[in-house]
């Protein structure tokens, strides 16, 4: 597992608003049903501010930045 901060999603909370994918298309795309798919690996440094904004914007607080890859 590579070091660094990883985006993780609480899949029970997430209801597919898709805001995160709009804010951070570099790392998050949506599947055919509108739910986010996160690019594997740690968030690159230059995208951290955007990732933090996406975390803060998620209306149901489903998105988080974690030190280990919970891969969910």
């Amino acid at each position: 597992m590579r070091e660094g901060l990883h985006l993780s999603i609480d899949r029970i909370k997430c209801d597919g608003h898709g805001l995160c994918a709009e804010l951070l298309p570099e790392l998050i795309r949506l599947d055919d049903w509108g739910y986010p798919i996160i690019a594997p690996g740690p968030v690159p440094d230059h995208l951290l501010p955007l990732a933090q904004r996406a975390v803060a914007t998620c209306p149901v607080l489903a998105l988080a930045l974690r030190r280990t890859a919970a891969s969910k």
């Binding site: 997430c14 597919g16 599947d31 049903w33």
Partner: peptide, 9 residues
């Protein structure tokens, strides 16, 4: 039916 990718997928 709690998680979108599981339920819809």
């Amino acid at each position: 039916a709690q998680c979108g990718p599981c339920f819809f997928g």
